[in-house]
């Protein structure tokens, strides 16, 4: 390794890699980066949000490309050792989602039945006068709600 690179530095660079479908959310805030280590190469471990996530290859490539830009060869391994849950999204990530118009997921531990899914908080008016329209949204990780206040549909990042 040419220059001394620290784990901290790597995390800083990873902040630049965004979710391919949600450009305001970094992979770190999404919580899919599960480990970073430095040996002969930089080694990144990540885990998919959903097993069938079609974006995982793109994320992998983005990580490799970004680190290459900073002069680091990186190897990315996808594993299920630390499975992702929606609780892995950071507070900063949740705030970014809301600002982007996607309701952040409620605490997953609370999600035992439909009741929790019923009253998601509308990302526009912050009220919970909402109803679940479809537990399956445009992407695997989102559900569709309707806000009775705004009279508008919105998407929620699902609790899993």
């Amino acid at each position: 390794m040419a220059e001394t690179v620290t784990i901290e530095k790597i995390y800083q660079w990873l902040e630049e890699v965004k979710d391919p479908e949600i450009p305001v959310l970094s992979l770190l805030d999404l919580g899919v980066i599960t480990n970073v280590s430095i040996g002969d190469k930089v080694k990144i471990e990540m885990t998919p949000t959903f097993v069938g996530c079609p974006a995982i290859d793109y994320m992998k490539n983005d990580i490799v490309d970004t680190l290459k830009k900073h002069g680091q060869e990186a190897e990315v391994e996808v594993t299920f050792r630390k499975p992702w849950s929606s609780d892995c999204i950071s507070e900063k990530g949740k705030a970014a989602l809301k600002k982007y118009g996607l309701a952040p997921p409620p605490d997953n531990k609370l999600f035992t039945d439909l009741e929790i899914l019923e009253n998601a908080e509308c990302p526009r008016c912050s009220q919970t006068n909402t109803e679940l329209k479809n537990p399956f949204g445009p992407t695997l990780c989102r559900a569709i709600y309707y806000c009775n206040n705004c009279k508008e549909a919105f998407e929620q990042f699902k609790p899993v």
Partner: peptide, 10 residues
């Protein structure tokens, strides 16, 4: 077991 833990949530 690792895959199953993830899949059961979905």
């Amino acid at each position: 077991a690792l895959v199953a833990t993830k899949v059961r949530g979905e």
